[in-house]
Design a protein around this nucleic acid. Structure first.
Lengths: 214, 214
DNA sequence: GCCCGTCTAGGGTATGCACCCTAATCGGAT
DNA sequence: ATCCGATTAGGGTGCATACCCTAGACGGGC
């Protein structure tokens, strides 16, 4: 891996663990195992590094927003794929959501596009849930799907912070993502047919060990 | 109002608006209309100021946790009172939740008690919802009340951040609290009897204009 | 061997900010 | 009038940190 990419990966991890403002450039260089001067060779300012991460973030979101349920496919697998991708994103770029006060409103791509991303995410989840209704796997009034999608998004979006506030560990491998996915299931699992509910639980159990590592 | 109290109030407001780390002691003194030396007369360190606010926070939470539905009273009014108090708290002390990465894990009262507070809040909401079930105003399986209480708490807790991410203004007087309360209602309003649903909506509409000012 | 991109080591600077210090003034209570 | 707590104005310090600068080394490609 090229040094520049190693810096981006390490920065993202440190910012997520310690908070954006608490990570010094000296500590980051040490974490990468490079001289601080080399960090400045690759990124002129700390802001340039932040924007490199934000550009990655935007690309990941655009790719995820392209996910749609297949017309004739496995609606449950499609839904599982989506929520897995969402949690991967919330976890990988956690500090970008959480530490906005620390890095300010000036990362242009986020300031401009976050509201639109969020609104599109509601729609994306709604469309996936509608497929579950169409296939008879979920019993939910069509008129109430939007609200369910929004509430599900909120719970997924803030799940890691929620468990942090409960004093639980929330880093990678702790099971916090799985807990969050299960938490969101409580919104509608009583309206899933029993087989689908079981499959979804099983898919979520399998998720933190493998799929989300990608 | 005594200067010391004025400093606490102004600090809380500035920390909420701008983020804890972005508020300099110079700006805070200016906001209070006092010399910076006077700020240091009242608080020896910035941390002392933070802890004064955290102590207030703890007292407010303890008082709110003491709220319980009356055995023979108006269950809907009791529930309304509780969610109003909760939103008041989330708004008044918003930075204490949001900016934890900025001020660190070292405010003892929060580090020690936040998980317990959150767990008690779930129970408090659950007990209030159970009263609504008992009075026939809410139709919800008893075994599922805990999950409803937790989901309601999450949505109330993160509502302001949610609307911020949607690009909406979230300061006092913007209607964000009302939107949050309405959002949480979507979890269960279809299971309220129509009169109760109408009353609750009305109570929420009245709330941001008056009751939450207290 | 030459060129060039990448990286190092080591020293440094400018800036921002929390907090200090001091002498004087002010205002309220006795 | 005196005392004392509260407040001011103005100057200052120490520290942390992002980022700069420079000469040299290293490694890969031609």
């Amino acid at each position: 891996m090229k040094t520049r990419d190693r810096i981006v990966v390490a920065a993202r991890a440190l910012f997520n663990e310690q908070g954006y403002g608490a990570v010094t450039t000296a500590a980051l260089a040490a974490q990468c195992g490079i001289a601080e001067g080399n960090l400045w060779y690759h990124f002129k300012t700390r802001r340039d590094l932040l924007e490199a991460i934000a550009d990655q973030f935007a690309a990941v979101i655009d790719a995820r927003l392209a996910l749609a349920p297949a017309a004739q496919g496995d609606a449950l697998a499609d839904y599982t794929r989506l929520i897995g991708a969402l949690m991967d994103e919330f976890r990988t770029f956690r500090f970008l959501y959480r530490d906005q006060a620390a890095y300010g409103e000036h990362v242009a791509v986020i300031a401009e596009r976050a509201p639109e991303w969020t609104a599109k995410t509601f729609t994306q989840i709604e469309v996936h849930l509608a497929r579950l209704v169409d296939t008879g796997q979920l019993d939910w009034p069509r008129a109430a799907l939007r609200d369910l999608a929004i509430n599900a998004t909120i719970i997924l979006r803030y799940g890691l912070e929620h468990y942090r506030e409960l004093g639980e560990p929330t880093g990678t491998g702790t099971g916090a993502v799985r807990l969050t996915l299960k938490r969101h299931l409580t919104l509608f699992e009583h309206q899933l047919d029993p087989e689908s509910a079981t499959r979804l639980h099983g898919a979520i159990d399998a998720m933190e060990q493998g799929a989300l590592a990608a």
